[in-house]
């Protein structure tokens, strides 16, 4: 089947199978920033925003997306013009292998949008669906706190 997807603000038509999950459709069409760590909804590497809401793209049938806006980590910023969260993750050492990073940054983005001043517990809760094996999460929490602070100052 075919459908039109809106990804990072761009409308584009993809062809896919009725049973394909969104993760595969995105990766098959060059959105490699969406990672596959387990395919079972447990690791969060494939997390995206769907109409601004954090979801695991491996747990969504592509056919059901219909008209909703998809945001991947590329939609937040790029190397030349990174988002404060992307900067903060780089500055704090929150990135080691980086395979979890796109999902982790989107989870943080979804949190800060709702809650610009999160407590440590709220940060932990918001990232509870994203596994990181490299950092022990310590520097990731720091990155979210730093980004929150910078974003509050910039507003």
């Amino acid at each position: 089947m075919k459908d039109i997807f809106t990804i990072n603000g761009q409308r584009i038509e993809y062809e896919f199978d009725e049973t394909d999950v969104l993760l595969d459709v995105l990766r098959n069409n060059g959105h490699y920033e969406v990672k596959k760590g387990c395919g079972e909804g447990e690791c969060g590497a494939c997390a995206i925003l769907l109409d601004g809401i954090l979801v695991n793209s491996c747990q969504i049938l592509a056919a059901s997306v219909r008209g909703k806006e998809i945001t991947t980590v590329r939609g937040l910023g790029n190397v030349h013009d990174p988002h404060p969260l992307q900067e903060a993750f780089a500055d704090t050492g929150a990135i080691q292998c980086g395979f979890c990073t796109p999902g982790m940054i989107l989870a943080s983005y979804a949190l800060l949008k709702e809650n610009p001043h999160p407590s440590d517990d709220e940060i932990k809760q918001a990232l509870d669906g994203n596994i990181c094996r490299c950092t022990g999460y310590v520097k990731i929490f720091e990155a979210v706190r730093l980004a929150a602070e910078r974003m509050r100052k910039n507003v």
């Binding site: 790029n78 780089a90 940054i105």
Partner: peptide, 19 residues
Amino acid sequence: SIRKVDALSIATGRALYTD
């Protein structure tokens, strides 16, 4: 403690892994 040289490319989803 400088930034990792690949940090921003990873954070912005441009770094390429095998697959």
